[in-house]
Write a protein that binds this DNA or RNA. Sequence first.
DNA 1: CACATTGTTACCAG
DNA 2: ACTGGTAACAATGT
Length: 271
Amino acid sequence: MPELPEVETIRKDLEKEIVGLTILDFKTEWPKKVFPSEKEVKRRIIGATIKSIERRAKLLIFHLSNNYKIIFHLKISGQLLIRCKGNPSDKYTHHVFGLSKGKQLRFADLRKFGYIKVISETEKDKELEKFGPEPLSQELNPQKFYEIIKNRKKPIKLVLMDQGIIAGVGNIYANESLFLAHIHPERKANNLSEEKAVTLYKKIEQVLKEGLEFRGASDNNYVDAYGEKGRYQEHFRVYGKRDKPCPKCGTTLKYNKVGGRGTVFCPKCQK
DNA sequence: CACATTGTTACCAG
DNA sequence: ACTGGTAACAATGT
């Protein structure tokens, strides 16, 4: 569930709190999601200092002082929490990084779908190469967006959520941006005029920025690195509002599966 | 207790 | 080689 704004919020928290600290220890109760192995991860990271923290799509990447990097994927329910040693335990914590200055980084994950991977900076990693351009960066603007989507034949919502086409957009921000752009989620991407595509891209930027402003959407169990919920869910227009009135025209919002994923839209406003 | 959940990949067909 | 469509998968609270 954490999408671009949620992961970026966590990234900023972590940057503020733990860049410059040294990793003293690593413990896991769920080695199945630690790659290449618990033992090798320990060998690679203990003693190294966290130099910088980057986000790519929905991934977080810690760059270490020793030419290794740690990649985190939170998937549906992962949380990264900054705590002090001895703080009360956090439910569903499966991995703990002991840090200098008495700090801890705890990876909690109810569903256990999230993972940790440590690789060398020079190692080519398929996972990091597959992503499309980042919205809110120089890599994308309305015209480039149009070029990227204009030949895609699948539903626009699936194009938005395809990490290989555009990085970081998930179900919440796809639903919300399509609503604001008045585009039906199942419209084929190649069916959108340049004008419509430009509008859509601007709406994507808008909802991502709103998400950042409210420190993410805690519709489910998302929390920032301090364990605090975001507030963007209070501003959803359609996401999770199946059978409620459209905020624009009052028509009952419809729910469909698009590509097997829950999708809410206004049948009147979104064509 | 079967189900919903969701980002991602595996697999297949075209 | 690439695209699109669908199933499968991770695990568990409800």
